[in-house]
Nucleic acid binder design. Structure first.
Lengths: 338, 338
DNA sequence: CTGAAAGCGCTTACAG
DNA sequence: CTGAAAGCGCTTACAG
């Protein structure tokens, strides 16, 4: 009904628009999509899932859910995955996506340089894109969806602060190589230090940081042994990503108790560590919701032509043994039989 | 296309169904709602909002949001509100709803007896209903959406346990009259005691409970004064509902510091107490999401004829000064200009 | 350039 | 009872 062809007397145009407004006219999307028979292709570029239940299986769940919902609107979603250890795999998939010329893209800008190149091409082709998980400032993005990692580091610090004595020794552990490519762990550490540095009372906590790169995978036990020996004792350990369950394993094997242990993300292994009491708090970010929202945002913008928020920080959830069961989204069980 | 009239040879029927399955046939809801021109009326029965930003303004937000989304499917939602101090107002609205014969109902079963009567009538008329906030067992409900309050009490206890010395004195405060009608506060208290009673190590915390009925509104300060005087000192206070900001006011006025204060629900007044540091933790339940989901569940069941879960516990969120900003749902700000 | 017709995948009132 | 036609609110290909 509303088209945009030809010249119309601006006065007439305004009159018509005013009447439409008065009648509160809204185009019927149902009728519109039904009639147009148009089909929309979105592309997704995220890390692969190297082992079962690894972190990126969760955003993928949300993406698949959104895909199923939007299918009736003629939306197809192609998911492309790259290896977190291999920037060239990112590049390769990015090229495939560009060749397909999708109407919109969701991407996790994991590798800074490669992502910047990809994003430049997308802008060139005027393909709108949504960042998921991490952000690149000043990039003409449609939207960013993820966690404020600085603030989540602040929160971790607060939890130690409230639950440990004032002179506690806390060890911060970065797990996994390629930290230069990952914003989250560094930002979390910054937030963590910021919390303690900006305390009004004289802060007496002793903070130490170590990195365990993935090439040390086999012998990270001895690295931690050495560190603890060096600093004498440890009251709390903060792991800046989802690998906290490995520290839980370490503590159990070494039979070290009464260490406050906090990490990130509700992957299966971490849930188990929460249940057996080794991990005290898990700070989480609703990854399924992130995946779902990323796709939904593209849909809102491209098909519904609705305004979308440019920054969409998901909640920073504190998960303990007690509330764990209420954070498992999209589980298939618990359905009625009607 | 698929109808249910007349007799068909069962064999033929099965064959056809099989072919449909093979073709993965799914009726197009868009075309269906467009063609049918059917209109669906839902009714909602929840408490009113006695002062700005009071708790029930939030589920209402979620309900309105869902109403806007489902409007294009021909769904209309009538919201009826009752006074939390007046069971007869519940009754009156329930009668109005029954007269309107809606296709589905969302209700907060606040008054046990009145709710039971209403629910019996709904079952009689075969009108499906969804409980929001509170539950009534064995009631042929379509679904319950709300918080597991026993578990949220457990969680509150855990937070005190981790952040207070082993011999701490904790005061539990029930605010508001008519507790006999409200399940949440009592269940939360039960969970709270349960946590400390089931600790493996000898529990040395001293727990005290008081009730402040709303007729004492004017002089609750003196009631707390008296209680604290009686028990000598207090290290933590747990308020079993959203009225925790009033205890925060009390502590500020009396200049009492270093009391760990935990309460429920992110209403505006509580958010402020969190920011100024009087309240340490707020345990929240995503009320907007509850409102939204209640309506959505009715839609899924009645229009989409999808199976729905019969119990839908929302997450039990721990909110602090640090993650507060990421729990404000549905705020209108922060939108881009595209 | 523009108006009018055909059609999207369904439902429903209706003729036979 | 049942098949075929009309129509839901749009879009699009097409005739003039």
């Amino acid at each position: 009904m509303i088209h945009n062809r030809g010249e119309v007397n601006p006065e007439t145009r305004d009159k018509i628009l005013k009447i439409l407004e008065e009648l509160d006219y809204r185009p019927n999307i149902l009728a519109s999509t039904l009639a147009s028979k148009k089909t929309h292709r979105f592309a997704v570029l995220i890390p692969d899932v190297p082992y079962p239940d690894a972190y990126w299986s969760k955003p993928l769940l949300g993406i698949s859910e959104a895909a199923a919902e939007l299918q009736q609107y003629g939306v197809t979603i192609d998911v492309h995955q790259f290896s977190q250890n291999d920037p060239s795999s990112f590049d390769k998939k990015a090229k495939v996506i560009l060749n397909n010329k999708p109407e919109g893209v969701v991407l996790a800008p994991f590798f800074f340089r490669e992502s910047n190149e990809f994003v430049a091409k997308l802008n060139e082709h005027k393909i709108p894109f949504v960042f998921i998980d991490s952000n690149i400032q000043d990039s003409k993005k449609l939207c960013f969806i993820g966690q404020n990692s600085f603030q989540s580091g602040m929160l971790a610090a607060k939890l130690f602060d409230l639950s440990l004595p004032k002179d506690a020794t806390i060890l911060i552990i970065h797990f996994g190589k390629g930290l230069e490519n990952q914003n989250h762990p560094k930002q979390r550490e910054k937030g963590f230090y910021n919390y303690f540095n900006s305390k009004t009372e004289e802060s007496q906590e002793k903070l130490h940081t170590i990195e365990i790169s993935s090439s040390d995978d086999q012998n990270y036990y001895s690295i931690i042994d050495a560190e603890i020996k060096k600093i004498g004792q440890v009251d709390g350990i903060f792991v800046t990503n989802s690998q906290v369950y490995r520290i839980a394993e370490y503590l159990i094997l070494r039979n070290i108790q009464h260490v406050r242990l906090i990490g990130h993300d509700l992957i299966r292994q971490n849930a188990e560590s929460l249940k057996n009491g080794t991990v005290d708090f898990l700070i989480c970010q609703r990854p399924e919701e992130q995946g779902h929202q990323a796709v939904q945002t593209l849909f809102d913008h491209i098909i519904l032509k609705k305004p979308v928020r440019t920054d969409n920080y998901t909640s920073i959830d504190i998960v303990t043994k007690e509330n764990l069961d209420y954070y498992k989204e999209f589980n298939q069980s618990n359905y009625g039989t009607n």
